[in-house]
Design a protein around this nucleic acid. Sequence first.
DNA 1: TATCGTAGTCGAAACGATTCGATTCGGTGT
DNA 2: ACACCGAATCGAATCGTTTCGACTACGATA
Lengths: 353, 353
Amino acid sequence: MGHESRVTLADVAERAGVSVSTASLAFSGSGPVSEATRERVHAAAAALGYGGPDPRARSLRRGRSGIVGVVLEERVRSAFLDPVKIQMLDGITDGIAPLDAGLLLLTETIESSVGLDSAPVDAVVLIGCSPRLEESVDRLRRRGIPTVAIEGTPAPDIVTVGIDNRDATRRGAQHLRDLGHTRVQVVALPADPERTRGRFDADFAGSPLADTMTERLAGAREVFPGITGWYGRASSIEEGLEGGRRLLGDVDPDDRPTAIIAQSDLLAAGVIRAAEELGIRVPEDLSVLGFDGIRPDGLETDLTTLVQPSIEKGRAAGAAVVRMLAGEQPPNVDFTSVLHVGATTAPPGSPVE
Amino acid sequence: MGHESRVTLADVAERAGVSVSTASLAFSGSGPVSEATRERVHAAAAALGYGGPDPRARSLRRGRSGIVGVVLEERVRSAFLDPVKIQMLDGITDGIAPLDAGLLLLTETIESSVGLDSAPVDAVVLIGCSPRLEESVDRLRRRGIPTVAIEGTPAPDIVTVGIDNRDATRRGAQHLRDLGHTRVQVVALPADPERTRGRFDADFAGSPLADTMTERLAGAREVFPGITGWYGRASSIEEGLEGGRRLLGDVDPDDRPTAIIAQSDLLAAGVIRAAEELGIRVPEDLSVLGFDGIRPDGLETDLTTLVQPSIEKGRAAGAAVVRMLAGEQPPNVDFTSVLHVGATTAPPGSPVE
DNA sequence: TATCGTAGTCGAAACGATTCGATTCGGTGT
DNA sequence: ACACCGAATCGAATCGTTTCGACTACGATA
């Protein structure tokens, strides 16, 4: 039963003895309908097993679907493993609450990203959007879909929400320098769209596209000009572990860095784990600086890190969406990170307490 | 610029000098169109800044929106804090991959749950759906929307995906009994829709609605018939901590349980933390059994727990959705959990190694 | 009593695409 | 040269609502 023709508003109207338009009003509540009529319509609906107006037709007519798309650059799985992303998502739901819209998870899959322009969204939020998205952003713009990018390259017609990546990292690096560190290296976020990993040297220009990575690196260089390091394939403990092994294990102990600037807390957690493996003590033999201010899974020490307001970022993005849908043109937003000095940084070569 | 009337397929068709239907074919590719025509249409589209067919209209006509709804019983925020939920979500995305549809996050908000029946979804997956959903499920059924419930009460017309909650817990409890435990208590999942918390005694019937909790409790009772305990407001470390304090701290040390069956790993982690607070050693003075097989944030010990295949559950749910949309009627699925013996269970009163 | 405003209702025109059946039109097979 | 076929194209109906303007009563105002 049930796969015959569906019950429509017209059926309900007929049974209730009213016109379709009246029946519509009885449901949507926008317009004057007598109490008696409303009841009759609802009764008819119940009798016919009508479940309410079809959202598809409604959204076509209204021009709004009540859905906000969220584009994650990676697989949903990996996005959900990153606490920062989750916090942003949470902030977004907060921010768009006034719309009472749903959140549609879209992943920037290979190529066509079918979802992105066949999805009935009223607006889109790009989270940590990668360069590959350029083209998609273009299509969104053409379709006139309001777009907000968190940590994205600023572009005409889209609102961006970001943080002071460069300056924050500079302050963190300065903290290390103040402690007396001079041999410092970086374990960085992915540097290219192909998601490779490897060492980079002092000349490394970064990718114009991997904005976050490049900015944070620039901040580190303001304090340690010739700084080199390693970039991973993702922001994860695993990649940090790999990077840590390379930077700490493959070298003559005398050349080994006394401090590592990790571009995320997850990477930092990996670096610390690598140090453990190699018998290097943190912070006595090695200082580690993170970025994000989350508490990485399984890391029990209090990480020195640059705390960024992830939830706020999401909330701001959500708020921007709301305003754009209201016809305004909200300004870009920039947040500030603060240095949290924990237990993973200390003067180089300091004795065990 | 841009808020005039939008460009439609008709405009494109006219400019390309073809009929609307041909233009449509040129885009959707379903039907014979000469190469020349297709190019002309696309050129016209580009010239006019047409971003492709409007998904709203398309979905009305096609009767499919390409969106699968996921209903989380709680706020999105708290759902994302539960690793089990995340794993299921991940599994779902995997499972519905063949549809290449988006995932719409819906929360069972108070009352009307605006989202649930005004959302243009082709199918819905309920995750850990609470009893309050009964009514919503009803509406979904009426609308003829295929519905899959993970850990939900079986109901006509909906497919359920579950695990052997009862039997698994029984095996876990048996493990404790085999170790020699007799004073055992439970720290349980929420027991009622109002999300209160408190003690429950040997007569406690559970809620017919909080299925998971009741089933797992029943399993424990098969081994320890008169077992009592505490139920929390959520599955979280925090609630486990609270429960642990009550069961371990508020009693005469001689009556104190020698083992606690936690109904989730997060609760177990909380219990362990409570034990630490109270100076109770795990597993020497207290054995703790978890459920889920995740690695709770910040817990460094290897938890003895019942490992359930969360990702598989999600995947199965996704697969069921796919089959339902294909017109089949897939069977319910039940998975099996396996006992992982870690370092948090030991014979009662055993000496420190 | 004539007039006006208003609550309630209705018809019909969108909304923007897809799709079914019909129509054209070169080109084969015989 | 005749009927016939498939490819390409087109017209028109359809998906199920919402909304706009028009129309009816009916009580209130002048």
